[in-house]
Write a protein that binds this DNA or RNA. Structure first.
Lengths: 134, 134
DNA sequence: CGTGCTCCTTCCAGCGAGGGGAAGGTCAAG
DNA sequence: CTTGACCTTCCCCTCGCTGGAAGGAGCACG
């Protein structure tokens, strides 16, 4: 499929998709007319990249995760190590998002009137119980 | 406290903290010697920024979320609207992270031997049940 | 007191990750 | 065969930092 379709289906701007090719992240085939030609597998990679980036993973982290799937020559133990390290990080991100959600819900729940409270909600946003000197 | 302490306590590089001041995100006071002086409240803001950025929110989104707390003159309804929009986005991020975690766990679980499966795990990473023409 | 050493300041430069838009080729429809 | 939508490359711009230089401030040690 052409880059326009790939863009629609992946949620990534065409510009970004071309950029990912430039930096060697995901190289599509080319049609005879020179147009980029994205396979279904390419599309899966693009969707993954869209998600990974929007979740705060760097391009290099995404590259690593993509290669877990793509690089057949990789050692099994290495795959496991990388994946498990990412699992830890993902759990941390989930916990932080849950905390953030709770704080925002609290904010919404407590500003039903015309004045919202002056409570230190940012403490919760920051996951910060209280200030203590180190 | 000085910028070095603020950096340690917030997890943000001092460079980044100065940058946030440059763009008007978080302005600390100044000591008599010209050094930046971060209050406890400033520190909470910095911690929030560290989290928000690492979770994939843009600097402008973080600015908006910070202002929910800081800007006392803001309309209550506006606060609510912004917070609720962010709640939707946060839930989406959480769901995506949970999906990603499941896929990685599957990968780890299925490569205990020397060969891991060639299953299209990237489909799950991409949240992609199957290819269907639009 | 000076001499380090560490921390702080500003400023300027560069990089990573794209985005805008020009100049031109391709394709399908009318 | 023209028109419009799509594609190509190329270059420059922006955002969000990051590194390093050049110099001031603070604190210890002789």
């Amino acid at each position: 499929m052409n880059i326009g379709d790939a863009s629609l289906r992946s949620g990534l701007p065409a510009k970004t998709i071309r950029y990912y090719e430039d930096i060697g992240l995901l190289k599509p085939g080319r049609a005879e007319n020179g147009y980029r030609d994205y396979s279904v597998k390419d599309l899966h990679g693009l969707r993954f990249l869209q998600r990974g980036r929007s979740l705060g993973f760097s391009v290099d982290e995404c590259r690593q995760l993509l290669s877990l799937y793509n690089d057949k020559s990789r050692e099994s133990a290495e795959v496991k190590a990388i994946a498990q390290a990412k699992l830890v990080e993902i759990d941390r991100k989930i916990a932080e998002l849950v905390g953030l959600r709770g704080a925002l819900q609290h904010l919404v729940a407590n500003c039903h009137g015309d004045e919202r409270p002056d409570c230190p909600i940012i403490d919760k946003l920051a996951g910060n119980p209280s200030y203590q000197s180190s």
